[in-house]
Design a protein around this nucleic acid. Structure first.
Lengths: 154, 154
DNA sequence: TCTTATGAAGGTCAAAGATAGTCAAACATA
DNA sequence: TATGTTTGACTATCTTTGACCTTCATAAGA
């Protein structure tokens, strides 16, 4: 598969996070390193290092500014709670998939379960007027998560 | 017999799949190779590489986009085949639940999986104008069943 | 010491570019 | 004529780029 620059930047940041819970980076330096414009770094952060994937971004502007990418440390049963709160907002397909990947990685969902749910909330399945699409996706996810929480209680 | 361009494209993709379970291709490149318009690739995929023939298509648009043609691993399961054909019609909540119970009884779905899917296609989740509701439910179910057929049985 | 100016970050947003998807009309063939 | 194929205009989605905006540390000046 042909990787885009954004994919490469994502991989770079991801692997920097292998050993640590956070990294600090300089937007300009990273952009220089990948020979792209600085705002592309923001694009990658906004599309790939999202709350639904378990990341938080902190940053500071001005002299000695920085960007900090932080991996959230949830203890196990908070993953569902966190996911539930994310369904209060409309989620696009990518965000929803990220959320499900995260639940899978955290062993809240099996591979099969996360794939099943991804199929259910895919753009292809929810073939509706665009403006209600993302809301519908969140609705469906919310019901699923509530069901999962119910089952965990037992 | 005189082969059409579509037949040739079909053969090309088919033989690429001889050794692998999936291939990734670029619509534009393939169209250039066969000197046809890009949308003819879609025509071939839609008419020849369908779920009922044992294939799934995944794709991504935009920069470094792709089309992935995947051979299903589990498309001979009669319960899944039957379920798939039922999704050609709109299904109300009760009909869908029956279908899922049946798949559960036949060990195609675990308890948890069938509960998850029931939550996803519940009236509460699909909070839409009633007339499109049942169609939406079938659509979602169809995508899920295709996903199940795609995957190796566990 | 306090205030202000300056330069060095990072942020936002919309346009342009790169793919793929849809659909219906035109065409071809059985 | 009915069915399957080819074409292209229009649409949708994801990525890349750049102009313009905001914030902050610190050096310069009062």
């Amino acid at each position: 598969m042909n990787k885009s620059i954004s994919d490469l930047i994502e991989e770079f940041i991801m692997s920097s996070l292998d050993d640590d819970d956070f990294i600090e980076l300089s937007r300009n330096d990273l952009a220089k390193f990948f020979a792209c414009v600085p705002s592309q770094i923001n694009y990658v952060l906004n599309t790939r290092f999202t709350p639904s994937r378990g990341f938080v971004i902190e940053s500071q502007r001005g002299g000695s500014g920085y960007i900090k990418v932080i991996k959230m440390q949830n203890n196990n049963n908070n993953y569902l709670k966190n996911a539930l709160s994310l369904t209060d907002q409309p989620l696009n397909n990518m965000q929803a998939n990220q959320l499900l990947d995260e639940l899978n990685i955290r062993d809240v969902l099996t591979d099969r379960e996360s794939s099943i749910i991804k199929s259910a909330i895919n753009t292809k399945a929810l073939n509706n007027p665009i403006n209600i699409d993302n809301t519908l996706r969140s609705n469906i996810l919310k019901q699923i998560i509530i069901e999962l929480m119910k089952r965990e209680e037992e």
